[in-house]
Nucleic acid binder design. Structure first.
Lengths: 212, 212, 212, 212
DNA sequence: TACTAAGCGAGACGGTACGTCTCGTCTTCTC
DNA sequence: GAGAAGACGAGACGTACCGTCTCGCTTAGTA
């Protein structure tokens, strides 16, 4: 999401602590971390109150006490603000540990994933971001890179380990297995609204595991 | 989509051909089929030129030569116009025939589905409609009823037949099997942009069929 | 000021009551005279409260209950609204009657002119409009045509009559005489703020009249 | 214009060239004459390119290479910068010499005045400054003191000499005579755009001189 | 043959948010 | 401490659409 190199929290700025050495002198006032936090907090609060469709840059500016220009300076639009705000707030990281078997690994991964997927505050935002990604090509790439593919990479670790162990059905590539996992999750969130519950975990494990 | 009872083509209006008998006198000018066609055609043309995000009711009215009121009289918003236009133009029907085995039935179903899913003009519209369904609760219900569940019902026929024959893995319910099929399709369309190709068909058949 | 042909009050619309005969069909909702009046009234009220510099289209819209678009549809900017509002409110017409002698005619004309020029609500607006005319070439032409030259034409009647009677100094052309009259008036309004009082009238008459 | 005591060129700063001696310690970097010149030059250049309405402090800062703060530190607004820039560039001084008769004095004064008034680069700026003086009370006073009344004082010298010689019509006070002269000049510049030519000089002399 | 009730193209209306612009202030770092 | 750089809160700009509301007309029944 960090469209601008200085979008992240302090300490992540490029160039390192070596100072303003080099041709690109760094003059002028620094970005206000206080404003950034206020904007992200206001965004989370507002999206919970009025929903994504009712979320506006003007509203975020008013609520956060920031000027509109400050928002436009650092984010291209409300979807990017929301993506940053979501990353700031919810810990979207799902740790991948080696539990000894593919079934166990997958159960752990899906458990963590479903837990997030059951929180309406999270899924409401994710549905809105996925929707916006369909309407805005540029955002689509940012959303993929900063969220979709990050989750997919986590699962890929598990799947490749399973493949190495021979626990994946021979006819099933890791890529397609990932498509099935995320496909079902997103399809339930976006299309049917069916819950992400325990039985589904076992059904997915059954479908993706090589029969003994 | 036909929110308004008179939304369909002539001949589908309620009351039947028996005439205006009864208490509800039907006077006044009839709906212009010509306008309806012009609006749907303009919508298809415009969405191809400017995309869904750039599609506006004002633009449709201007292009079609209709008044804005005429559009608002028969559709709640641009998504519904587009849904009607898509149904009018593309034949979204995927026939379900009994090919003798689940694998063959599924292969046929997926073949028809993927064929549509490879047409960018169709998928662009579907992505937009799915996106809009995330932002508009009322439209979500209409989209489900008139498109999503209709396709799902078709697959359900195949799946229940497979279950009756014992061709579905014991641990896999027909509902979840449908989630996997549509999940993968929509996930590739919405999230990764990966193509819906022949290998995927075989992988899905492999994952959903009881091992011999 | 009436940039748009339909800008004036009802009854002045072109084409006459003969109906929509001819190529230029007049379809659509008619301009709301009520909105027009509300906008002009709000403009007068606001300019009295916050001054011309503080006058904004947004403020006029908010005060009048009109949409901004409605204002922009009929006027190019706040100066034109104000010019219309001034014409609507203050009777800027100075009648020119034949009093028998140039001195008497001029005394009457200046009496009427000075009376308006002593009203701060009028001069404040005129100063602002003259100022805006210096910054906006298009407005300058409209201001000249709808105000400056209209007043000048009135005085020209008096001056030409005087010239015909031989009451104007031989070396003084009517045009320059008008420049002197309006020049002094505007100079006092714009530059020095000196009052437009009775002694000035007599001094001007003395300077513009052929000595006996 | 020199609102700030240090606004003038070097050497005019208070405290004198004696240095920072005395109780009021004057520490720190001195004002950069280079910046001042760059700002005034950029202002003249910009106003010629984009006009006064398009002139902005930001634009001046960008063009001159100065920071915005530096401009705001020394001038209250763009009008004051422009007033300084005009004084720096154009020699606005009209010398007043005793030619022996009021007619000759006036002819000399008007000749010099009209010469400046025929230069569009000068009149464009003067029109803008006069316009701004109508919108900004504080600037109005500065404009009067540093330009309008300075020119008026010069003419007053001529007029009082004429009055002492008895060359002014008895009914005409020197003040009103000045109003007529400057009124016509400004009126032509601001309102009609008519040129300031030789015939006008003679007409004014005729109107302001006591008939023989 | 009227009368009456929609539907129609046109377009003005009150709203609202957009993204941009400039203001005048403030912080940061360099000279 | 002046100066260049540039982020900041503020708020108006003019535009784009929204969905609603007249308008004057056409088009069908109903009488």
């Amino acid at each position: 999401v960090n469209v601008n190199p200085a979008s992240g929290p302090p300490g992540t700025s490029p160039g390192g602590p070596g100072g303003p050495a080099g041709g690109s002198a760094r003059a002028g006032r620094k970005r206000s971390e206080q404003s950034r936090q206020a904007i992200l907090a206001a965004t989370i609060a507002l999206v919970g109150e009025v929903g994504y469709a009712g979320l506006t840059i003007e509203g975020i500016a008013a609520r956060s006490g920031a000027g509109k220009q400050t928002i436009y300076r650092w984010w291209p639009g409300k979807a990017d603000v929301l993506l940053d705000a979501l990353a700031e707030k919810a810990d979207l990281h799902v740790p991948v540990s080696d539990e000894g078997s593919f079934a166990a690994d997958l159960r752990t991964f899906l458990g963590g994933t479903f837990r997030l997927g059951r929180d309406p505050r999270v899924t409401d935002v994710l549905r809105a971001l996925m929707a916006h990604a369909q309407l805005d090509t540029d955002f689509r790439d940012r959303f993929r890179a900063s969220f979709l593919y990050r989750r997919r990479d986590a699962l890929a670790t598990v799947l490749h380990r399973a493949q190495a162990r021979g626990e994946l059905p021979a006819s099933l590539s890791p890529g397609t297995a990932a498509d099935i996992v995320f496909g079902v999750v997103w399809y339930r969130i976006l299309a049917t609204g069916e819950p992400l519950d325990e039985p589904l975990i076992e059904e997915l494990i059954g479908a993706l595991t090589r029969p003994a």
